[in-house]
Design a protein around this nucleic acid. Sequence first.
DNA 1: GTGTTACTTAGCCATATGGCTTACGAATCA
DNA 2: TGATTCGTAAGCCATATGGCTAAGTAACAC
Lengths: 114, 114
Amino acid sequence: MAYESTDTITPVFGALADPTRRAILHALARGPRSVSDLAADHDMALPSFLKHIGKLEKSGLVTSDKQGRSRMCRLRPDGFAPAQNWLAQEQARWGGALDRLAMHLETLEKGPRQ
Amino acid sequence: MAYESTDTITPVFGALADPTRRAILHALARGPRSVSDLAADHDMALPSFLKHIGKLEKSGLVTSDKQGRSRMCRLRPDGFAPAQNWLAQEQARWGGALDRLAMHLETLEKGPRQ
DNA sequence: GTGTTACTTAGCCATATGGCTTACGAATCA
DNA sequence: TGATTCGTAAGCCATATGGCTAAGTAACAC
């Protein structure tokens, strides 16, 4: 099997694999916020914080646009789809886990490998 | 809000943020497989491959036990729960996105921040 | 008991990640 | 105009990540 030609899943899971970024997403779920406003909750220098915003944007989970001197960030719920679809599809595969275990045991009986 | 005292979510998303590891999980959904059996699909040296297995184990998505000289790996479906719960909870938060937008606007009227 | 198979350990390497400071640009306020 | 605020840019640093080779150990096959 092959992965998607352009891998959209990896950056999404990558973005979610950090508590600071998850907290940002959590905050943005309440509505749009400016960068400095979001940053106020995180004891971290602004440039460091902006890297997180940047990663969230690249992953497709967040958009932002500049308004005057401040930058407003907003959630892009569609961005979660690649991750959720992957999880849903995999979950569907182990839906028949017990059946498959039985098949496996049967295989072992016919041609034990261990 | 605080994160879980011991962060179980980060390692799970971290484990999922790699195509090789997702492919391993995909393969294991069919049933248990040995390390070398799994590795055969991935043009990669065994020690490199084992690091991926190790990361999957630390994240709680996979278990393995030694049988003779080979190591059998099996999926741990429960391991996905932290990631799925987080996603589900967040999704619930932007479920009423329009309602919340209204609330947000109301808040702005009372105590404008921007 | 010798060889092969299946990991395992150790260590090297390049790049990515997550943090920092310092300094600059552009918008707003006084 | 001058000071402040909000974001950017550039560059440093330590650690993590994802790959490798080379050399072990333990189990099985002959």
